[in-house]
Amino acid sequence: MKRSKKRDRLVTGIAIICFLGVWAVMVLTASAAPVDLRDFDHQGKKIYDAHAATPQPYMSADSGDRNLATYYGRRQYPGSPPIIPHEVDQTFDGDESNCLSCHAKGGYSQEFDKFVPVTPHPENTLCYQCHAKVTTKEKFVETDWKSIRPPRLGRSFLGSSPPPIPHALQLRENCIACHTGSGAVVEIRVDHSARGNCRQCHVPAVQTTPVQEFVRKP
């Protein structure tokens, strides 16, 4: 039932987009046709939507039961999709609504007795595409793999300035998801979740990109 409904919405969505496309071509100069607000600035609308939609108690709750060590322990390198650290029923057919029933909003899961991390990209619903479950911890052969060091915390440019965003934003556009709430990693939780315009203060400064100074062209 749930799924068929979703498909209907998708079809109308496509119809609207096609219609707008045709109409926009017909108007010569600066049509006032609305632009898809979800689809630019690293999907910047997500932050504002999440900020508006997440109740304040959710954002300020802190279970303190996830830390950076476990966070990176589930990843092969900073930015890789984490493994699924919990049991998944053998009969699970990959229906996203099962994952999202917990990972869309977070909160406490009685089944796992844990606070659930929130996904920053709930619109990518084919969870198994990237997130692998763990059926064995044995390796086929040993590996020489070495990861780069995760971004260090607190690397503000000045003593009291807000730390920059050390990671790329792709698939991690929604700051609210990972940096607030009871499932958030304690070291990177923010204590000022009421403010919604995150990139007002936090500058993207991806640590793997070289830092360059401004030099006037002669």
Binding site: A24, V25, V27, A30, S31, D39, F40, D41, R216, K217
Partner: peptide, 19 residues
């Protein structure tokens, strides 16, 4: 699809860059 999106028929340029 960067920081902003102008409608069809408009372009937008930030003026800060002396280059």
């Amino acid at each position: 699809k960067g920081r902003g999106v102008p409608p069809r028929g408009m372009v937008f340029v930030p003026f800060f860059d002396e280059s």
